[in-house]
Simulated assay, not measured.
Amino acid sequence: MRKLLNVLYITSPDSYLSKDGENVVIYCKDEEKFRIPIHNIEGIVCFNYTGASPALMAMCAENGVGLTFLNENDKFLARVNGGVKGNVLLRKKQYRISDDESQCVTIATNFIYGKILNCRSMLRRTIRDHGNNVNADKLEEASSYLLNNAKKVLNAKSLDEIRGIEGDAAKIYFDSFNEMILSQKDSFYMETRNKRPPKDNLNALLSFLYTILAHEVQSALETVGLDPYVGFLHRDRPGRASLALDLMEELRGPFADRLALTLINRNQINKNGFTVKENGSILLDDKTKKEVLAAWHARKQEEITHPFLDEKIKFGLIPYVQALLLSRFLREDLDGYPPFLLK
Rank of each mutant, 00 (worst) to 15 (best):
L5R: 11
N6F: 13
I10N: 01
T11F: 11
S12R: 09
P13A: 08
S18R: 07
K19L: 12
E22R: 13
V24H: 02
F34N: 06
P37L: 07
H39G: 11
Y49L: 10
M57L: 14
A58Q: 15
M59N: 04
M59E: 15
C60Q: 07
E62K: 11
N63L: 07
G66C: 13
G66W: 04
L67G: 01
N71G: 05
N73H: 13
A78W: 06
N81C: 10
G83Y: 14
N87P: 00
K92E: 11
K92I: 12
Y95Q: 15
R96L: 15
D99P: 01
D99E: 12
Q103I: 12
C104M: 06
I107C: 01
T109D: 11
F111Q: 04
F111G: 01
I112W: 01
Y113V: 07
G114L: 07
R120C: 15
L123I: 13
R124W: 11
R128F: 10
N132E: 15
V134H: 08
E140A: 08
E141V: 12
E141T: 14
Y145C: 12
L146D: 08
K151A: 13
K152Q: 11
V153N: 03
V153M: 04
S158K: 05
E161Q: 14
G164V: 09
G167R: 04
G167F: 03
D168N: 12
K171A: 10
Y173L: 08
D175L: 02
E179R: 03
L182Q: 03
Y189S: 11
Y189K: 13
N203V: 04
A204K: 01
A204V: 05
S207R: 00
L213Y: 01
H215A: 12
Q218W: 07
S219L: 11
T223C: 09
D227T: 04
Y229T: 09
Y229K: 06
F232T: 02
H234M: 09
R240C: 05
L243P: 00
A244V: 04
M248T: 01
E250N: 03
R252Y: 03
R258E: 13
L263A: 02
Q268D: 15
K271F: 08
N272D: 14
F274K: 03
T275C: 08
E278M: 11
I282W: 00
L284Y: 00
L284G: 00
D285F: 00
D286M: 08
K290M: 10
V292A: 03
A295V: 12
W296T: 07
A298I: 14
R299Y: 14
Q301W: 07
E302L: 10
E302R: 10
K312C: 07
I318E: 06
P319L: 09
V321Q: 05
Q322G: 03
A323E: 09
L330N: 00
D333K: 09
D335M: 10
D335Q: 14
P338M: 05
K343Y: 10
